[in-house]
Every structure is written in structure tokens, then in C-alpha cells.
Simulated scan of single mutants.
Amino acid sequence: MGILMGIFAPEVIVQCLITIKYIVSQLIKFTIPLLILFYVTSGIAGLPKNSGKLLGKTVGLAYLSTLGAGLFAYAVASGLFPVLLHGAGHLPEAHTAIKPFLQLRIPPMMNIMTALTIAFIFGLGISNHDAGELRTVSNQGRDIIEMFLNKVMIPALPFYIAGVFADITVKGTVFATLKTFSLVLLAIIVMHWIWLTIQFCSAGIILRHSPMKILHRMMPAYFTAVGTMSSAATVPVTLQQTKRNGVSGPVANFVVPLCANIHMSGSVISIAGVAVAVMLMSGTTALPTLLQALPFLAMLGITMVAAPGAPGGAVMASAGLLGSMLGFTEEMIALQIVLHLAQDSFGTACNVTGDGVIALFIDRMTTHEEIAGDDDLQEAPVSINDSLYSE
């Protein structure tokens, strides 16, 4: 509709769409620090206090997988996309050809790094000192931000996207952009599949399982995530299929729900791949080397803790880092959001399917004594299976 309006609609209609796009972009920039503050604080504060070594292993392995996925995606995209997108055209200049009716600036309360720092300090403090009132505040703040996203931001996104495309149609770059979109989306989905292949082949070799068998058992979780676009909504299926892969009940009950919040390999592949494409299309930002992009990818893995529970939350949480660390303009962030949302379900599916691999590794690394020493795991309803790897 944005393209059609950009071609055929009167200028006043296009100006209305561009006004909506401008206001929504201001709200996005205002909301991102609050989203990170409350989601990260609530997530860290909610981590089990008495889960000791198992918690450390799970968080460490999930972060390494997320960071590895980002490095893989950035390396592949920076090598492939310059050839793939050669001659596809560039993004329009950062300024808007048709100005919005109302330029209402809504500055954020804090920057991204301030929000992250506060979230880590208070999240760890709440967890260690059992600060019940602060935990309630962080949880209620998270719920309010989620309600705002669900009631205001998400319903406004179609108009925002229409405004983006009406804008680039007026500027005459829409068809080159659409051609680029299709190539980038296909490449990113293939990168998801390659990363899953790497994960399951590694698990098969190290754990002496058949990679095809364990991947086959996780496919119901993959397809459920494609349909729901939510790691949290897919947890029951992921948990069931993980146990069918031989993971003990206590470990699966602990690892799968936790990884649904912290293991975002598919989302990071999507964000890193799209970011490379947008930088190449912009023609105004030099493409950083993999070493130069490492700080961004490392911070992105941490920031993804803020993504769960919010539809499209991964790209919303990353927008601040894209601007502050990679120099993205408002126009570049707008296209980043559009591209990410177009394949968000496949990134989520990659996330949850990889959770099964994390659970397999944690189950092999965990001893009966560690499980017995953790009060949270002792309460797990499923007993340990002594013949986990008999197949």
C-alpha cells in the first residue's frame, strides 16, 4: 500500500503516512532504552538464585552460541553481499523528500549503554539480595512496556512500514530496494539453516548421536516457532522434543525456558546480516571489518536478553546499538526494522531449535551431584533417566 500510495496518491496522503512514520520512529527511539532497562533487569533478577553451576554453564554456552552465530552471519554477509547486491541500487539520502506535517521530537530518557548498565546493576542486586519490592517494580515496568508495544507500537508498524515505502517510492528508489530485499531475505534464511546444521553436526559428533535424528525430533519446535513467531509460546513443544532427544527431565525443565530468554542465535544472524545489507545499500557507511564489528556483536548478544516477550523485540532492542555503534541513520534503522520483520519467524525458529542443542550439551556436562545440589532442580517433576545416551 505504501508503494501504491507513493505512486498514485495525492501528496497530502503521502505526507500523512510520512508524518506517522516520523512519530513512530520517535516513539521507537524513546521506548528502546526503557525496554532494555525493564526487560534486562527483570530477566536477570528472575534467574534462579540457587542453580549455581548449571546456571553458569547454560548462560555461558547460550551466549557463546549467540555470539558465534553473529560472527558467522557477519563474516558470510560481508563476503557475500557485496557481490550479491552489486548493481542493486542505493538507499535514498537520509533526509525526507516530503516533510511530515508535525516534527515532534521525543528524546529518550537515557542512552542505550546507560540503560544496560543500570539493568545489570539492579538485576544482579535484586537477584542476590532478594529485593522483592524492586523485583515487583521491574516486572511491572516490563509488563507496562510490553502492553505499550502490543497496544500502540505493533499496531502502528504497518503504517510505519507503509510510510517507509511511500517515502522511498517518492524518491524513486523503491524497485531497486525491493530487489535487494528479496536477495537479502533468502540469503539470511539459508544462513539460519547452515547455522542449525553446524550446531546439530557438532552435537552429533561430540555426543555421538545421529545429527539427523536429533534434528528430526526438534522439527516440531521449528515449525511451531515459524507459526507463532514467539520463543515463549513455543516452549512447551521445545521442552517435549528436547526430552525426546534424551535430555533428562530436570535439565530440560531448567535449560529450555531459560534459553527461550537468552539464546538468540537466529535473531542475531538476522540482525547482523540485515545490518550488512543496509550499510552496503546506504553507500554512506563504510563496512566495518569483522574485528571492528566484534564489539557490536558482543553487545548485541547481551542486548538480546531484552528481546523476549515483545513482538519484533529483537530488532527493537538492537536499534539503539545500530545507531550508537554502527552509525545507522533513522532511514537505515527504518529499513533494518522492515527487513527483520519480514523474516522474523525464521529467526525465532532457529533460536528455539538451537535450544535443543544447548540442552543436549548441558545434560552431558551436568553430573548427578550438581543436580542434587540445586534446590530448583530437585523440584523438577521428571526423574533423571540413567540411560540417556543408549541410542
Rank of each mutant, 00 (worst) to 15 (best):
P250E: 02
S267N: 10
I214A: 11
H216Q: 14
I269E: 08
P220H: 10
P220R: 09
T242I: 09
T234L: 03
K213S: 11
V276Y: 08
V247K: 07
P236A: 03
H263W: 00
G204A: 10
A277C: 08
A176H: 09
S202I: 13
I198R: 03
A162W: 07
I205T: 08
Q240C: 02
K151V: 14
F200D: 03
W195N: 07
V164H: 08
S138Y: 09
L239V: 07
I161V: 14
K213W: 04
G204R: 06
G273E: 06
K151H: 07
L185S: 14
P236Y: 01
L183S: 12
T136Q: 11
V256R: 03
V268D: 02
S182M: 13
A252G: 02
I188M: 09
M191C: 05
M218L: 14
I198Q: 01
V152D: 00
L149G: 14
S210Y: 04
I214Q: 12
S182C: 08
G246F: 12
A233M: 11
F165P: 01
M212A: 15
A275C: 06
L185A: 15
P236M: 04
T224G: 00
A176R: 08
V184S: 04
F254W: 05
M264E: 03
A277P: 00
L185C: 14
I168C: 05
R244W: 08
L186W: 12
I271S: 00
A260M: 10
R208E: 15
L207Q: 10
G163T: 06
S202Q: 06
T177C: 01
A225G: 06
K179M: 12
V174D: 00
C201Y: 12
F181D: 11
L134Q: 04
N139E: 13
A176E: 14
A176I: 02
A176G: 15
K213Q: 14
M191H: 01
L134K: 05
S231Q: 11
M264C: 14
L185Y: 00
V170S: 01
Q140V: 13
L186N: 10
D167R: 10
G163P: 04
L258F: 04
D143F: 00
V152F: 12
H216Y: 14
G246E: 11
M264W: 07
P257V: 06
H192Q: 11
I154K: 13
S230M: 05
D143M: 14
N261W: 05
L196A: 06
A225E: 02
G172C: 12
F165W: 05
R244E: 15
A221R: 04
S265F: 00
T242G: 09
A260S: 14
T180Q: 12
